[in-house]
């Protein structure tokens, strides 16, 4: 738990998520309460189906709990309309996927530019932001490459650039190194560490990999939808 001096950026209380599969009720999250401090680098670990990604998706406001309360940056994000929550995600959240999820017909530059198309920035401002983001991940020389012309590690770095281009406060990463070789994984984790330390981003990373979790300040484990004691 953060100390009083630390600002809590995510505050979950008794979060529950259950759904029906055939005649069984499955609890993806079972009474999860957690506080994440601003500037934290938190790793969420646990076996498959333990609820890690569900918790991450709730913080990103792309999934809704069936019970409990979640405040992100002091806001009850589930009270926002679709339009408002989309805007909120665009401004406050950077999401990094396991399988990169770049748009195959867009170049690295255009992929990174996508979130900025929703802002009021003009073309030159967007260009500056995109080039800065690509430079931060060391891909300033790959701006016109299509995803298929990049290695897996480079694709994930473009995905990170896309996640940070709007300068969000929270970076959510769902198994960001799951599809990468160890060298590329280390590069990606170095970048995320830099973003946490230098750019003061709060990072929440879901991972199976203890090596990846070692980059985090704090690791929490989930099992069968429950958060194990720290």
């Amino acid at each position: 738990m953060p100390t009083a001096a630390e600002t809590t950026i995510v505050q979950a209380r008794n979060l529950q998520k259950s759904f029906k599969r055939d005649s069984f009720e499955v609890k993806a999250l079972d009474d999860v309460s957690i506080d994440i401090a601003e500037g934290e680098f938190l790793a969420l670990m646990g076996p498959s189906g333990s609820g890690k990604t569900t918790l991450l998706n709730m913080i990103a406001a792309i999934d809704r709990p069936t019970g409990g309360e979640l405040l992100v940056m002091g806001e009850n994000i589930f009270r926002l309309s679709d339009q408002q929550s989309a805007k909120w995600r665009n401004e406050k959240i950077g999401y990094i996927f396991q399988s990169f999820n770049l748009i195959p017909v867009l170049t690295a530059f255009e992929n990174v530019e996508l979130p900025l198309l929703l802002t009021k920035l003009n073309k030159q401002e967007r260009r500056d932001h995109v080039l800065t983001a690509l430079k931060l991940v060391g891909l300033e020389d790959r701006v016109h490459h299509l995803p298929k012309q990049l290695s897996g590690g480079q694709e994930q770095r473009v995905a990170i650039a896309r996640a940070i281009v709007t300068d969000p406060q929270i970076l959510l990463a769902d198994e960001p190194t799951g599809d990468l070789d160890s060298h590329s994984a280390a590069e990606v984790l170095e970048i995320m560490t830099r973003l946490n330390q230098d750019a003061k981003k709060t990072v929440v990373m879901v991972t199976h990999d203890p090596h990846a979790a070692a980059y985090a300040h704090l690791t929490r484990h989930l099992e069968k939808g429950m958060l194990l004691p720290a």
Partner: peptide
């Protein structure tokens, strides 16, 4: 993915 990055 588009919805996740903020497309309404």
């Amino acid at each position: 993915v588009l919805r996740t990055i903020g497309f309404p």
